[in-house]
Computed example of a mutant assay.
Amino acid sequence: MRPEILNNGYGFGAKALFAIVRIVSRRSLPDAAKLTFYRPDFYGSPAKEFTHQAMRGPSAWSVGERELMAAYVSKQNESPFCVGAHTSTAAQALGDEPMVAGVLSDLDTAPIAEPLRATLRMLGKLTREHTVDADDMRELRSQGVTRAQIEDALAVCFAFNVTNRLADAFDFSMLTPAGFDSGAAVLLKRGYH
């Protein structure tokens, strides 16, 4: 059940920004963006900064690979809004919609490099079982995944396990495919700030 305060609990500045976005883009601001304006000191600002660093900060993983991780974690959590948003963003970033769809439908047969497959497998396990162990890390390292890449992937996993739960708890409104594509273009241009 969507709390009414998320529809109306914003100050004048946020409401004005939402109206400007609606006029310029001809679309309402997605609920994921609106949530960061509700109690920005408690959740919004820290979450935006952490997510931006995880998704756009320096990393050996490309932006597209990190967006694919976000989509994969969201798929494991069965979070429809986040699956739609990050599937579209990953497909645009990687320029390969069939590959992204392949990863989300069958990771074992998807046409991706083994280090990325092993990393996604570990993120899936962590998301579903809430645990990983030394053997999981050894498997990643044997596939050529560096310690820094593991840390970066875990940051993406954390960000989207939190975001998925919020999206589902607050009943984020689903967008049309065109809405997800438009949002993806903005995410790729501006990041998560």
Rank of each mutant, 00 (worst) to 15 (best):
R22V: 08
G11E: 13
R26P: 05
A85L: 11
F12V: 12
P177S: 01
P40A: 01
S62M: 08
R39D: 12
E139D: 14
V162D: 00
P46D: 07
E129V: 06
K15P: 00
D171L: 13
R128H: 06
G44F: 06
G179C: 08
L126R: 15
W61G: 07
L68A: 09
S142E: 11
E65G: 00
L166R: 06
R147W: 01
A118N: 12
R27Q: 14
K189Q: 14
M122D: 07
P46Q: 04
K125Y: 00
S74V: 01
G95L: 07
P80C: 06
L29G: 08
A60V: 00
V83Q: 07
R121H: 14
L6K: 10
L123G: 02
S105P: 05
A153M: 01
L188T: 06
V132K: 01
V83A: 05
S25C: 08
S105E: 14
G44D: 06
Q76M: 10
V63M: 02
R147D: 15
T146Y: 06
I112F: 12
L166G: 06
A153N: 01
K48D: 07
Q149K: 12
G44M: 07
E78S: 15
R2S: 08
Y192G: 01
H86W: 02
S25G: 01
E65D: 05
G84D: 00
G9I: 09
T127Y: 07
M174H: 03
G11S: 11
A118Q: 15
L175H: 08
K75G: 04
Q76D: 02
S59E: 07
L188D: 09
N164D: 11
D41F: 13
P98S: 09
M137N: 00
N77M: 14
S79W: 05
F158P: 00
F160A: 01
S88L: 00
G13F: 15
D41K: 14
D133C: 11
Y38A: 13
W61R: 04
P98R: 11
P40L: 03
R141Q: 15
T51H: 02
E129L: 12
G57Q: 03
R27D: 12
R121Q: 14
L187P: 06
Y38C: 10
A85F: 11
S79P: 07
A91I: 03
R27C: 11
R117V: 08
A169F: 14
T163F: 11
Q53F: 12
S105A: 15
M69K: 04
F81Q: 04
V103T: 11
G84R: 00
A14G: 06
A118R: 15
A70W: 02
D152W: 02
T119C: 13
R128F: 01
G179R: 06
A185T: 11
A113N: 13
A184W: 00
R147I: 07
Q76S: 07
Q92M: 14
H130G: 13
S28E: 15
Q149I: 07
L120C: 03
C82F: 05
V103S: 04
